[in-house]
Simulated assay, not measured.
Amino acid sequence: MPFFKESMLVKEKDRQKLNKIIASGNQDYIDLILTKIFDDTTILLDGAEAQEERMRMQLLSNGKISAVSDGVI
């Protein structure tokens, strides 16, 4: 199984909005925003499903799955 990595990007504009929300003190809204920005589990699972689909389509179109490794186990 090939390795995959997903990165999480928080833009400066999003960070500034987050700081304003934290300063407001509305804990329910803070929790909602933090859950949306830092939902790592869902993002990683979506990436794994996309990788799985890519491998299936590669198998159907080429008859084989090619995996490139940089030697890291």
Results as ranks from 00 to 15, higher is better:
50 A>D: 12
22 I>W: 00
24 S>M: 05
8 M>N: 07
41 T>A: 13
27 Q>S: 11
21 I>F: 05
64 K>W: 07
34 L>K: 15
15 R>Q: 13
13 K>V: 09
58 Q>A: 08
68 V>A: 11
17 K>P: 02
9 L>G: 00
19 N>W: 00
59 L>T: 00
40 D>A: 06
31 D>N: 12
43 I>V: 13
1 M>P: 11
7 S>R: 15
23 A>C: 01
22 I>E: 00
7 S>H: 06
72 V>A: 11
40 D>F: 15
49 E>V: 11
29 Y>F: 13
34 L>D: 02
32 L>G: 12
56 R>S: 06
14 D>G: 03
11 K>N: 10
2 P>V: 09
55 M>I: 03
68 V>T: 12
49 E>R: 14
67 A>V: 15
14 D>I: 02
65 I>Y: 04
73 I>Q: 06
47 G>W: 01
33 I>S: 02
39 D>W: 06
1 M>T: 09
32 L>M: 10
67 A>L: 15
37 I>G: 04
29 Y>M: 09
33 I>Q: 04
43 I>E: 10
35 T>A: 12
34 L>F: 01
63 G>V: 01
62 N>F: 04
55 M>R: 04
31 D>Y: 04
18 L>T: 03
19 N>T: 03
53 E>M: 07
71 G>S: 04
22 I>L: 13
64 K>C: 03
62 N>D: 15
52 E>M: 11
59 L>H: 07
8 M>H: 09
9 L>S: 13
67 A>T: 14
23 A>K: 13
7 S>G: 09
71 G>M: 02
36 K>F: 03
69 S>H: 10
13 K>A: 14
58 Q>K: 07
23 A>I: 04
60 L>P: 00
30 I>H: 04
8 M>Y: 08
4 F>V: 06
64 K>T: 05
37 I>R: 00
44 L>W: 03
58 Q>L: 03
63 G>M: 02
11 K>Y: 05
21 I>P: 02
57 M>D: 14
54 R>I: 04
30 I>Q: 02
